[in-house]
Design a protein around this nucleic acid. Structure first.
Length: 264
DNA sequence: AGTACCACCTGACGGC
DNA sequence: TGCCGTCAGGTGGTAC
């Protein structure tokens, strides 16, 4: 589930459950999810310390450690978090387990292990080193427009390019383009200023709506494509059937009537 | 700069 | 029930 709205929900989850509690033990169940750090280093850094606060940039969650830098969490395609008391409730694909002194646990669960947990100096350095673009929720319309004006590729690829904007993935780019009535394969250069302004507006609306619904797909409005995201499904606006195609190397769903290839 | 393809991994699902 | 192919919400490297 991990695009910007999902990570924002994970952030709030950590804030609500796991801050300011002394860490008793760290169990590394799979070293695959460790980045540049080692199991030994992670354990020794975290043990006896606590999570102090969190930040999010795009799909990255940063957890501040009391007096010892930051922990980065990236959730890949299948990562998630679970906070629980009874050890029997540890999720099936738990890769890292943080045990707190209050008896509760936080698990980093990730079936495919494309996720990463690492120790880093801080969010700003990390964002700069990775050349990540701005988080779309922090962009006003003019900055958004200027950002996209500097690009030349397909609109779907551009929305998903983390160096252009950080946080949008395959699902939400489809949703944003559906709401903005833009065909996924149109190039950014074909969009005029009003179109880019509307694209910005829909981006914010889609992401904020998803966050407000806890990024829970079933809770999204029926007017969203995401609840109709399969070939042949009914267009939420009643304009025919959803189709799929490949765009930016990913399977993309769209409504050919609402999102025509040719601008009118 | 942009795109297409492959690789990294495992689990879920549909067809037989 | 079980096996097999296909696909999956991300990202990084390579080649063009």
């Amino acid at each position: 589930m991990p695009e910007l709205p999902d990570i924002e929900i994970f952030k709030r989850y950590v804030d609500a459950t796991s801050l300011h509690q002394k860490i008793r033990k760290v169990e590394v169940r799979s070293e695959k999810v460790l980045g540049a750090t080692s199991a030994r280093k992670l354990r020794s850094t975290l043990k006896g310390r606590s999570f102090e606060s969190t930040r999010r940039h795009g799909k990255n969650l940063f957890v501040k450690l009391a007096d010892a830098g930051w922990m980065l969490m990236h959730f890949g395609m299948t990562g998630s978090l679970a906070y629980f008391e009874n050890p029997d409730d540890e999720p099936p694909n738990s890769r890292l387990l943080f045990a707190f002194e209050n008896g509760y646990h936080l698990a980093f669960d990730d079936a495919r292990m494309f996720g990463k947990v690492d120790l880093i100096a801080g969010p700003e350095d990390y964002v700069r080193e990775r050349e990540l673009g701005p988080d779309p929720l922090e962009l006003d319309a003019a900055s958004f427009r200027d950002r996209l004006r500097g690009t030349k590729g397909g609109v779907k690829a551009t929305l998903m390019n983390q160096k252009t904007l950080a946080g949008i993935g395959n699902l939400y780019s489809d949703e944003i383009l559906f709401q903005a009535r833009i065909h996924p394969r149109i190039s950014v250069a074909q969009l005029d200023d009003p179109a880019l302004q509307d694209l910005h507006k829909q981006t914010l609306r889609v992401l904020n709506t998803a966050i407000a619904r806890d990024a829970y797909p079933q809770e999204l409005p029926d007017s969203f494509l995401l609840s109709h995201r399969q070939e042949g499904a009914r267009c939420p606006r009643g304009n025919g059937q959803i189709q799929k195609l490949q765009a930016a190397g990913r399977t993309s769903y769209f409504c050919p009537t609402c999102q025509p290839k040719k601008a009118e």
